[in-house]
């Protein structure tokens, strides 16, 4: 099974300079967050969708379809029930279901889902190492950059460890998919403990491997990956800054919610 999100490919998006990718994705995040209504989120989602297609990452959307759906529906559900609606259709304790609540919930759900889609776009087209390089180029110290990107390295390792425990237990007759969905989720919980302990044990060895390979040296460092600025970078940079600007203005003048 493939665990990392990165798609090994050579699309125009993959070829972008990593600093452009980081700045661009930041702009998209800004846009995703300022979008105050579904009307504002949907065109953005369309743009992100097109880019996902361009980056060859639609398979990843499919892989994470349940996650994205869960984010959408859970957000919608929680906000529509607990938003403090002015004129509720229905009120019961803290639950106040009303028009403005539903509206706000829908906006938030769209906003959050687009947000995750943007993240997916970034991870599909950017290697963790590129991300670290970009951080280095915008002035983040190399060690800090590594630590900041560590999470992205460790998550697939965690998932990998978890999957192998799951396999080991299935192999010995433990059926994870028995019972209703709540029970299924409960079956997976005990897997977390050995994975976590295993990760702690690994961390020590990894620290040693890092030291032995000169991680603590003061520098200067070089990079195996060479990057050149191209026209594509300029276009992408201008494009994403304009996109962020457009959404900021739109949200400001059209008003949110």
């Amino acid at each position: 099974m493939k665990l990392s999100i990165y798609v090994v490919a050579n699309t125009p998006l993959h070829r972008l300079h990593p600093v452009v990718k980081v700045v661009g994705i930041f702009c998209f995040f800004v846009a995703a967050f300022t979008a105050g209504s579904p009307i504002q989120s949907l065109p953005l989602a369309a743009v992100v969708g097109a880019l996902l297609w361009l980056g060859g990452a639609l398979a990843n959307v499919w892989r994470f379809r349940w996650f994205l759906a869960l984010v959408f529906f859970m957000t919608f559900l929680v906000w529509s029930l607990f938003f403090h609606s002015e004129a509720p259709w229905f009120a019961w304790g803290p639950v106040r279901l009303g028009y403005d609540g539903v509206r706000f919930a829908l906006a938030t759900a769209c906003r959050l889902t687009t947000f995750f889609a943007v993240g997916l776009l970034f991870l599909s087209t950017t290697r963790v190492e590129e991300f670290a390089d970009a951080l280095g180029m915008i002035g983040v110290p190399a060690k800090l950059g590594f630590v900041m990107t560590l999470a992205f390295r460790l998550v697939p390792a965690f998932v990998d460890a978890a999957l192998s425990v799951v396999q080991a237990q299935r192999c010995r007759g433990f059926d994870f998919d028995r019972g209703n969905w709540l029970e299924r989720v409960r079956h997976y919980l005990p897997v977390i403990v050995p994975v976590f302990i295993g990760a702690l044990r690994r961390a020590d060895l990894m620290a040693m491997a890092l030291e032995a390979r000169g991680f603590q040296l003061p520098g200067p460092r070089t990079s195996y990956r060479t990057y050149a600025w191209g026209w594509g970078d300029a276009i992408a940079l201008v494009g994403s800054v304009m996109l962020a600007g457009t959404w900021l203005l739109w949200a400001r003048f059209a008003g949110g919610n």
């Binding site: 990392s4 990165y6 290697r127 963790v128 190492e129 390295r153 491997a209 390979r213 195996y224």
Partner: peptide, 14 residues
Amino acid sequence: FSTSVECEVAFALE
């Protein structure tokens, strides 16, 4: 700990 074979080998050299 790297995400590609060549980055893994290059890490120390960097």
